[in-house]
Amino acid sequence: MKRILLVEDNTEIRENTSELLELEHYRVFPACNGQEGLEIALKEKPDLIICDIMMPEIDGYHFLEILRRESFFENTPFLFFTASAEKSEIQKGLDAGANDYIIKPFDADELLQLMEKYLGE
């Protein structure tokens, strides 16, 4: 079972996305901010990370920067979850080392296809 870290400060989005992924047989580790996400990532070593950009404590860009410094996470697929369709925001995330992004509100099939792309399923 693939392990997914979901870092999202919006409770409703976090819970709904977690439920969607669990129904698809993923093991989900939800985190409500970047600090909690880092703690979970270091402990659980997820196969893929989905992370919001705008969050309290540590934003998504800084979260990604910290994670990529750890050798274990150099190649872990990282998807930004963003409400912003601004090309500059998306490009900033890709330049920071994210593999891809999905814009909220998202289509469930779109998210699952993107995850399968990076998990090789």
Rank of each mutant, 00 (worst) to 15 (best):
M1R: 12
K2G: 01
R3D: 13
L5W: 03
E8I: 06
T11C: 03
T11Y: 13
E12R: 12
L21N: 07
H25F: 13
R27A: 13
V28K: 08
V28C: 06
F29C: 11
P30K: 09
P30I: 08
C32F: 10
C32Q: 13
Q35P: 04
E36F: 01
E39Y: 05
I40N: 10
I40V: 15
K43V: 02
E44M: 12
E44N: 10
K45C: 09
I49E: 04
I53C: 00
G60E: 04
F63Y: 12
L64W: 03
L64H: 06
L67V: 05
L67S: 06
L67I: 10
L67D: 06
R68W: 02
E70C: 09
F72W: 14
F72Q: 11
E74D: 12
P77A: 07
F81K: 01
S84E: 12
E86H: 11
E86F: 14
S88C: 01
E89G: 01
I90S: 07
K92I: 06
K92V: 00
D95F: 08
G97E: 09
G97A: 10
G97D: 07
N99F: 07
N99P: 03
D100F: 00
D100V: 05
D100S: 13
I102T: 00
I102C: 04
P105M: 08
D107L: 10
D109Q: 14
L112T: 05
M115S: 06
E116A: 15
K117L: 13
